[in-house]
């Protein structure tokens, strides 16, 4: 019983820590992105609130929280209210299975540095990411507005399609690691990170992951030139904030996943595990921002064609080759 209670307390602490750090990082990721984009476009970016605009995220949060929360009259109220939460929640939950470091030994008790190590962790990531679709699709539909609906439909189609290469690109990883557990996958990379043996899978995964996160060049669900703001056109205040938050948490989660699957997770010389993970996440996030600042948006048919005609076949071929090599 004592054991159980202790475990429960440890779990709560771990969850709280992860949640806090994630949210904090998310808000500063916004700041980093704005700054970096501005630099890429030869502007200054936010620089009024605090030194280098460092307080800008806090100002934004206060602004969002205090804004009026408008629900359109024709909207489907319960779903309208629910949708943003789904987006933020699924993004946050994905982090529960990401290991951040070596087991910690505290008071003679070994504490795994992961909130939950389940043997189907990888599938859980997929399950959650597929649930994220609902937030977009339902948010768009419930707004009862043309632009939002089109955005929602685009989002649903895009995310469902890209889940396929996303999943298929990870099959070789699972084949190499012999496990669905992220902890095991990281451990399997003790010798070398999988990016060395699975460069193709890495490329597919990163591209699909970016499409999943609906960021430029894959941001058709919210393409502002055509759709206003896409599926979240009608949202305001903190509900909009939740979509926003979800997106940036998602970026971090993707960074974490890329590092777990291909970059060896928290493993690395000299630095402690969590620090390595943080570095890797940051690098991935920065690359994503860089891409955003560089590439133009795809056309919708190009988006779909790339998924079904390039990524999926490539991922399948990759699986076959990997299997072949393993069998030999």
């Amino acid at each position: 019983m004592i054991n159980w209670i202790a475990g429960f307390i440890v779990l709560l602490i771990k969850s709280g820590l992860v949640l806090g750090i994630l949210l904090l990082l998310a808000s500063y990721l916004v700041w980093v992105e704005r700054k970096l984009l501005a630099r890429l476009q030869v502007r200054l970016g936010p620089n009024r609130a605090g030194k280098f605009g460092l307080l800008q995220p806090i100002a934004d949060a206060i602004k969002l929280l205090t804004k009026e929360d408008i629900v359109p009259a024709a909207a489907d109220r319960p779903i309208f209210l629910l949708a943003p939460a789904v987006v933020a929640l699924t993004a946050l939950l994905m982090f529960a299975v990401v290991p951040v470091g070596r087991d910690l030994v505290l008071f003679g008790r070994s504490i795994p540095m992961v909130i939950s190590d389940i043997n189907v962790a990888l599938l859980m990531v997929f399950a959650l990411s597929s649930l994220g679709v609902y937030g977009v699709a339902l948010g768009g539909w419930a707004s009862n507005s043309k632009f939002a609906l089109i955005g929602g439909i685009r989002g649903a189609a895009q995310m469902v399609s890209y889940e396929l290469p996303l999943g298929l690109s990870l099959v070789p990883v699972v084949m190499l690691a012999h496990s669905f557990s992220l902890v095991d996958i990281v451990n399997a990379q003790a010798a070398y990170p999988f990016i060395l043996v699975q460069p193709l899978a890495f490329a597919i995964f990163v591209i699909s992951a970016m499409a999943e996160s609906k960021r430029i060049p894959f941001d058709l669900p919210e393409a502002e030139n055509e759709l206003g703001a896409g599926f979240h056109t009608e949202y305001s205040g903190m509900r909009f904030g939740l979509f926003f938050l979800g997106e940036y948490v998602h970026v971090q989660v993707l960074g974490a996943l890329v590092s777990v699957f291909f970059l060896g997770g928290w493993r690395g010389p000299w630095l402690p595990g969590p620090a390595w993970l943080f570095v890797k996440i940051t690098i991935v996030a920065l690359i994503m921002i860089w891409v955003r600042g560089t590439l133009p948006r795809l056309r919708y048919d190009q988006l779909m064609a790339m998924c079904w005609k390039v990524l999926v076949p490539a991922a399948l071929v990759n699986i076959v080759i990997t299997g072949f090599v393993i069998l030999i």
């Binding site: 699709a137 539909w141 439909i153 649903a156 469902v160």
Partner: peptide
């Protein structure tokens, strides 16, 4: 999702 997609 596909159901929802079609419905929408």
């Amino acid at each position: 999702v596909l159901f929802l997609f079609v419905i929408m």
